[in-house]
């Protein structure tokens, strides 16, 4: 709950401010007094093992998890009274790939633009924004394809385009690199770099720093619902320095060997 405050003079107003936030899932405490401040222009990674509460923390910020104590502010407004959702872009952890009805890449990305439209009426500028978001993630050529025909990495790129299409000032991403192929990882890192360069504030939930490491200003490590570390990204310490950690891929079938041949040989 303590941790070193890295007050940088170049970063601005708090965009996310969590103070003493507690939350339970059922009767099990998942967050036990989280303090987290993300300032304008910062890129903050939220790290921790499975079950440490990092996804719950992010979901409490966007109001998807009821909090039992503490305060959360977004852009200086208490979250309960926050209405300016167009300023927030959210990329959920990829679980259900598609709905029960086919939908194209464009249709999915367009739904992210609703925050910027009046009564869901699309104008020329909205269509242009959809096209721009698709180009940002390199999916413009797949615009008319069904999302069910995409790979995991391409699907993730679509979800990021859906968040970017509203031109948010704060981007919240829950495990954007999970199960993403290398080509898509590079596209995602590049997209994020462009967003950060344009001044977007980013809060990322990550399992490991991985290819995004150079972008990250500050890392917050959670364990058992408490903040364990708040400061510069831990370099080659903690989880991702453990031998073998990088090679655990829960999406691979049990006992699957990492692919070393094929495209990369």
């Amino acid at each position: 709950m303590t941790g070193t405050e890295t007050e940088d003079d170049t970063v601005g107003e708090p965009v996310i401010a969590m103070r003493g936030v507690t939350a339970e899932l059922g009767s099990r405490p998942v967050l036990r007094g989280i303090d987290l401040t993300v300032r304008s222009g910062e890129v903050v990674a939220l790290l921790g093992a499975n079950g440490s509460g990092k996804s719950t923390a992010v979901r409490s910020i966007i109001g998807q998890v009821p909090v039992s104590g503490g305060t959360i502010e977004l852009f200086g407004t208490p979250r309960r009274g926050f209405r300016d959702w167009a300023r927030v872009g959210y990329v959920p952890q990829r679980t259900t790939a598609a709905g029960g009805v086919p939908a194209t890449v464009t249709e999915i990305v367009s739904s992210g633009r609703l925050a910027r439209t009046r009564f869901g009426v699309f104008r020329k500028a909205d269509r242009a924004a959809v096209q721009r978001a698709l180009e940002l993630v390199g999916m413009a050529d797949r615009a008319k394809d069904s999302v069910t025909a995409l790979s995991g990495g391409q699907h993730q790129r679509v979800l990021i385009a859906r968040a970017l299409v509203a031109e948010p000032q704060l981007l919240i991403m829950d495990e954007p690199m999970a199960g993403v192929d290398l080509a898509s990882q590079e596209v995602l890192a590049r997209t994020l770099r462009e967003q950060v360069a344009a001044g977007t504030t980013v809060l990322l939930v990550l399992h490991e720093l991985g290819p995004l490491e150079p972008l990250i200003d500050r890392a917050v490590v959670l364990r058992d619902g408490c903040v364990l570390h708040d400061g510069p990204p831990p370099r080659a310490v903690g989880q991702h320095a453990l031998p073998g950690h990088d090679h655990v891929h829960p999406h691979a079938p049990a006992g699957a060997e990492p692919i070393r041949t094929g495209l990369l040989s």
Partner: peptide, 9 residues
């Protein structure tokens, strides 16, 4: 995506 729709406002 109900959750995303909520974050869209």
């Amino acid at each position: 995506d109900e959750e995303f729709a909520r974050v869209t406002g």
